[in-house]
Design a binder for these strands. Structure first.
Lengths: 183, 183
DNA sequence: TTGCACTATATAAATTGATATATAGATTAC
DNA sequence: GTAATCTATATATCAATTTATATAGTGCAA
């Protein structure tokens, strides 16, 4: 149900459907994924509801594109979503479900391998996030205090990722140590 | 596709559909939610595939129930799922999408309120998790070292929750401090 | 006899994954 | 040189799966 509002948020700046997919893959990948087959029907629906405006434009490369932008009505809907307060408890973490049933694997070695693989994934993810943070830091000498408002809130989501995934890496470490005591 | 495997995991012990819903609400609520309307069709499908056995039983209260249990074939499917390694990057966190667009709210006070509400939610969640952990600690004097295997891995998911949600509460705190500097 | 716990299904909406269509520029084949 | 192919851009649809909301019957207890 949030895709609608995320599109209204992204389309405060004009984008084509194809552009929006890139934003999901590059910017939102840490907390939301969306396919083109979701994006296009939603754009159509939101246009019909006058929450988005559409202009057809020529593309530099490839065929002509439809450029969408949030209307005043759409902006109000976005603000309502934010004013309704934070939406929590929507997480689905498959790897935690796997951890829950990990004892169904035959040997302690296999359980250990699973947790080591998980730690590796999480470490890589954490390093990526830290890399993005370094990019911000090089652009702002007094990071995060000197960020302009329009970059401050997106940056908060990055700070959250660094902190959270860091905690998960630590948990993997501790879990591995505990499992080794059971070998 | 994970619901299927979670059901196979739960049904290593016999449960009715209604029982399973309670397990999701009480045990899995921190990382997976499922509705009865998802559970029943999946049980039917997995029975037809001979991954689950069914026995009709009289209920203490209410109408008779079908009690399901994972078969050998189902057990193999569960083990395959675990052996394929951890499934990551499937998160959808609506509150982070909201944070990303928080600057669309008119005043800094409103943005601060949002983050304070989020912190409150997260603190409550964290306290619940710590409560569950105290229950474990009272049952095992040498927690978590003296846990039997069949309780050790479920407990890991709880330890993860405490650590992760703790980090999120800290992030909320830091974010609130940063936003206050912008008032 | 009202309410609650238990059991289950129906329907609608959202999401995913695969596929189809088409244009333009770049690369390669002949 | 030009035809064929490849790659990137752009839009769209379909089937299958997953998720959410609402509805409905059953038996017991207060």
């Amino acid at each position: 149900m949030s895709l609608k509002h995320i599109l209204l948020g992204i389309l405060q700046e004009p984008h084509s459907g194809y552009d929006i997919k890139k934003v999901f893959d590059q910017v939102f990948s840490n907390f939301w994924a969306a396919e083109l087959s979701q994006i296009y029907p939603q754009l159509k629906k939101l246009s019909e509801q006058n929450m988005l405006s559409v202009v057809e434009e020529e593309s530099d490369k490839g065929p002509s594109k439809k450029v969408y932008q949030t209307t005043e009505k759409g902006q109000k809907e976005l603000v309502n979503w934010l004013q309704d307060g934070p939406i929590v408890h929507t997480e689905k973490l498959a790897y935690l479900a796997q951890t829950f049933f990990l004892n169904s694997l035959a040997t302690t070695e296999q359980k250990l391998e699973f947790m080591q693989a998980l730690q590796h994934e999480m470490k890589t993810w954490h390093q990526n996030l830290c890399g993005y943070q370094k990019d911000w830091q090089s652009r702002f000498p007094n990071y995060p205090y000197d960020l302009p408002d329009d970059e401050f809130y997106p940056n908060l989501t990055l700070m959250m990722g660094v902190k959270k995934v860091g905690a998960i890496v630590e948990w993997c470490e501790e879990s591995i140590d505990l499992i080794k005591l059971r070998l």
